[in-house]
Nucleic acid binder design. Structure first.
Length: 624
RNA sequence: GCCGCCGUGGCUCAGCUGGCAGAGCGGGUGACUUGUAAUCACCAGGUCGCGGGUUCAAAUCCCGCCGGCGGCUCCA
């Protein structure tokens, strides 16, 4: 039940027209004028009962006493709620409310009529109050779930270890001297603070390179992507999707919004209030998904699955997932409110199979990041685990540390308070020593039950699967963040920053020495273009030095100059960025075919998309 | 959400003890036709984030809001 309490100088109303749900009324109820009332605008909601009325009456009584009102007007006002009860129940409860306030001079405006009203609010501090009242049953239930979840989190204590070469070290006993980045990561995880007073480098880079930018007209944490940014993002999206499909996942698509009232989803949401975007539909309210779990679990719940189908993998690239993070938490491409995440779920028949998949997906994540341009030395591994699960699976956990051969930060909990017993993350540590998770896999022991997902076993009986959640790369935007931060770190170490060639928006820039060679340059560009190379031509009326400089500040991997000599020899004068430094540039002569071949080898079988920009620089707008 | 700092042409910033709104880059035009990280000249471009207040006068001082950054909190 929702109440809006107004202490007024007077209140007048007059019925105009009956609706279908109008209650029958006498002539003298059709209009009223009341002096010095406490007006109670009231909306009766689903689930309200006599208990709620009692509480509402108590609120009204308290307020009336405080403001010194002797008259009460109960005024049905549907607009206070989007979750109204049936009209019958509403009338019943409103009448009950009236009956319980008989020691006041009480008026009840008729239900179900269009009414005109006039009110004069007194305007003192207590003259306008709103109240939300829930039945004990309901609020007790919600309170219990909420407080239980919060209590669990409070009570849970983390124990920290380092796992290296199959041995578990207490965090204090481990010698970090050879692993400074792991030390930074562990510090960050355990203390969660860092003294920095600088804009993260990737924010500046994403804007300067015309990849992405803030969009003031949207909510914070929703970015705009310029053509180059969209290209990079799109290549990454395609790559990760392909990787998961090759791994055996079935790609699906599920809605981005779900009813708040759905029985399965509701409990989940109540644990995390105010974390999601709410959308008003015609009748119901919806929340925007924060991952693909909902859609995929609901799909699995309805599917007929047997042990022969397991492990069963389904995949979706969520463009977008929405999380209404607190404002102070948002940073550039690192932490967003709308982001794109590959989300794969694997149903497994038992823990053996789940563990097996866990290891496979660990390897899948390593490969995925490596292809994107993030190597194991660029991230730190964390494993989060319940103590029980660790004790029962010591050998298995120890074996994980051998896959990459580098030490792993372990966070161990005495009891399970999330839905998983085990998860790993690959955490990127950025130029400002902040860590954020990229790839992750979790073993979920709870949601099969919650969503009623089952498979038929060999004995014909229904069983609950264990479910793995896997994001092989983590959020796509976050991968771009990591690549930009990595490039910045390279720059600080005296290297020329760049993106992997397959992700570079422009792979080759052709610069004619003068106007005379423009036709020749365009000709070569068209040939390369036909060979699936992203190439452009700097046809602007600028000096050669200026053009070289501009190409360099755009991080273009290959700069090819053509002039008289090149035309004669049918070669290109190519500057290779990856082998150059700011002081000395690596220049070499190559034929067009050699350059094409070099890039083709470098990009292997990574996805390719054509340049989404005009071939000639002079025809290209600047988005900044 | 709380605390602190910031918001001036497209970009980076100066101006801020109140007194005519500036520079460099970028853009346009012209000259030059160029050999590996910024060619020269001229021109255009601004409700100083938004709203209110103080004042003869506000980019400048005060209040509120919006946005960004950092810290705290948080991160299913």
């Amino acid at each position: 039940m929702k109440l809006l309490l107004i202490h007024a100088n007077y209140m007048e109303y007059e019925v105009k027209k009956a609706t279908k749900i109008a209650e029958k009324i006498d002539e003298d109820q059709k209009s009223k004028s009341i002096e010095e009332p406490l007006v109670v605008f009231t909306a009766v909601e689903k689930g309200d009962d006599e208990d709620v009325v009692d509480k509402a009456v108590k609120e009204i009584r308290d307020t009336a006493e405080k403001v010194g009102a002797k008259r009460v007007v109960i005024y049905p006002y549907a607009h206070l709620s989007s979750n109204l009860s049936s009209p019958d129940l509403a009338v019943k409860l409103l009448k009950l409310m009236e009956a319980k306030l008989l020691d006041f001079e009480v008026y009840r405006a008729p239900f179900g009529w269009y009414k005109a009203f006039r009110i004069s609010c007194k305007g003192h501090p207590l003259s306008e109050l709103s109240r939300e009242i829930k039945s004990d049953k309901e609020s007790a239930k919600e309170d219990k779930e909420l407080t239980q979840a919060l209590k669990d989190e409070e009570k849970v204590k983390s124990f920290w270890y380092i796992l290296h070469a199959g041995k578990l070290y207490n965090i204090n006993e481990f010698d970090f001297s050879e692993y400074p980045k792991l030390k930074k990561f562990a510090d960050y995880e355990m203390s969660k603070r860092r003294a920095v007073d600088r804009t993260p480098p990737h924010v500046e880079l994403m804007r300067r390179l015309q990849i992405a930018d803030y969009e003031d007209a949207s909510d914070s944490g929703h970015m705009r992507y310029y053509p180059k940014g969209r290209l990079i993002k799109s290549l990454l999206e395609d790559f990760v999707t392909r990787k998961c499909i090759e791994y055996g996942a079935m790609e699906v698509e599920t809605p981005i919004m779900y009813s708040r009232e759905h029985p399965t989803l509701r409990r989940y949401l109540e644990r995390f209030p105010a974390r999601q975007y709410i959308i008003k539909g015609d009748k119901r309210e919806f929340f925007l998904r924060f991952a693909a779990c909902f859609g995929q679990f609901l799909m699995c719940s309805d599917a007929v699955i047997t042990y022969k189908n397991l492990p069963l993998k389904i995949y979706e690239l969520t463009r977008y997932s929405f999380r209404k993070e607190q404002r102070g938490e948002l940073v550039g491409l690192r932490r967003l409110r709308a982001f794109t995440m590959p989300d794969m779920h694997t149903l497994t028949k038992d823990m053996e199979q789940a563990k097996n998949e866990f290891i496979n997906q660990y390897r899948l994540s390593v490969e995925t990041l490596r292809a994107i341009g993030l190597n194991p030395e660029d991230y730190e591994v964390a494993i989060r685990i319940t103590r029980d699960f660790y004790e029962e699976n010591r050998e298995f956990i120890n074996s994980i540390s051998n896959i990459l051969g580098k030490p792993i930060l372990i966070e161990m909990w005495d009891r399970r308070f999330f839905y998983f017993v085990l998860k790993f993350e690959f955490n990127f540590v950025d130029a400002l020593d902040k860590a954020s998770a990229l790839s992750t896999v979790q073993i979920d022991v709870e949601n099969a039950e919650r969503y009623d997902i089952s498979y038929v076993g060999e004995d014909g009986k229904k069983r609950r699967p264990y479910i793995l959640h896997c994001s092989a790369s983590g959020a796509i935007e976050r991968c771009i963040y990591a690549l930009l931060e990595k490039a910045h770190i390279d720059m600080e170490n005296g290297k020329l920053p760049m993106l992997p060639v397959w992700l570079s928006p422009v792979q080759v820039r052709i610069i004619p020495v003068s106007e005379k060679f423009l036709g020749y340059a365009v000709n070569i560009a068209e040939r390369m273009n036909a060979s699936l190379i992203r190439v452009d031509v700097d046809d602007r009326d600028e000096t050669l030095g200026k053009k070289i400089r501009d190409a360099s500040t755009e991080w273009i991997p290959y700069i090819a100059v053509v002039g008289e000599k090149e035309v004669e020899k049918r070669k290109l004068a190519v500057t290779i960025r990856s082998e150059s430094t700011l002081k000395s540039q690596k220049k070499t002569e190559m034929s067009v075919e050699e350059l094409i071949e070099r890039i083709r080898v470098e990009c292997g079988n990574m996805p390719f998309k054509p340049l989404p920009l005009p071939l000639k620089l002079s025809e290209r707008p600047s988005f900044r």
